[in-house]
């Protein structure tokens, strides 16, 4: 009778919790899979850990709810008085350690992938300013400032009277977007001219801080042409919410055509040659003090 109760209640609780989990997934947004190898890796890791947490949560909370339903004084139960169980305690110390090791392996592999920027075919230097970005295509003479598009900037003023939904890509549009080639390993060198910023495009799978006096290195290789939008992610003053990042990825030939039309263009038309020059002078270490 008693065991039967536990089985019935457990099944009911399990069903309820699975419904709750399904509801959470059905209702909500999720991390984008993105358009780079790394963003896919980050997404896979995110989902792996999320599911592990869901399973653990269903087990632990399930046991708790079963207990709440059955082991209540109003059911006339007598409280047991046990205070420990060596076997159980060893089990719930050891099993989590094993699960953590299982998580750590793919996480380590992904991190090594992210931190290896060797073999980059071109370099772009990104400098954060309050509250705009400067993009420099190294050794081509092309550089420009990218700031919030004017219609967004007008609409975002206090009590502007403009409905944000009428503005295209409200707060996620810039005057000059960063244009990059697809299927090219691009090394990004990040620094700042004033306070700390953080350059982030969710579709690329990472963000990295732009810190004054330090050059941080990251890389990306975008597989699909398209427009990808992000924002500054590190609080950088009053207009922190108003310095978006827009990346337009174009096929290599189109990109080279675009680059050659930019004002100040001096460089060669072969992007892969560009990287060779800069790779020699630039260090991959993040701790380069510009001030020295």
């Amino acid at each position: 009778m008693k065991n039967q109760n536990i089985v019935i209640v457990s099944i009911a609780v399990l069903a309820g919790m699975l419904l709750a989990v399904w509801g959470m997934f059905a209702l909500g947004d999720n991390m984008p899979r993105g358009v780079t190898e790394f963003s896919q890796t980050a997404y896979d890791l995110h989902m792996l850990i999320l599911w592990i947490c869901v399973v653990i949560g269903v087990l632990v909370f399930g046991a708790m709810f079963v207990s709440i339903i059955l082991h209540r004084k109003s059911n006339g139960v007598e409280a047991a008085q046990f205070t420990h169980s060596t076997k159980a305690e060893i089990a719930w110390t050891a099993i989590p350690i094993l699960i953590l090791i299982l998580m750590a392996v793919p996480a380590t592999r992904a991190l090594i992938l992210m931190e290896t920027s060797e073999g980059a075919e071109m370099d772009i230097k990104i400098t954060g300013y309050q509250w705009k970005w400067k993009y420099e295509y190294m050794d081509t003479g092309v550089s420009f400032i990218s700031s919030l598009a004017q219609d967004s900037d007008i609409a975002r003023q206090l009590n502007s009277g403009i409905d944000p939904t009428t503005v295209d890509n409200y707060l996620l549009e810039v005057d000059n977007a960063l244009v990059v080639p697809t299927d090219t390993k691009i090394r990004l060198l990040l620094t700042s001219g004033d306070v700390i910023h953080s350059w982030w495009v969710p579709e690329l799978g990472w963000k990295r801080d732009a810190i004054p006096g330090i050059v941080n290195t990251a890389w990306t290789s975008i597989s699909e042409p398209g427009t990808y939008r992000g924002q500054c992610a590190e609080l950088c003053g009053k207009d922190h919410g108003f310095m978006p990042v827009v990346v337009i990825a174009k096929p290599r030939a189109e990109f080279e055509q675009w680059l050659a039309q930019q004002p100040g263009y001096t460089g060669s038309d072969d992007v892969s040659a560009l990287a060779q020059d800069t790779a020699d002078d630039m260090t991959t270490s993040p701790e380069v003090a510009l001030a020295d």
Partner: peptide, 10 residues
């Protein structure tokens, strides 16, 4: 999980 944290952070 650091690679995922690059997305979650801030």
């Amino acid at each position: 999980i650091v690679p995922a944290d690059f997305q979650y952070h801030d």
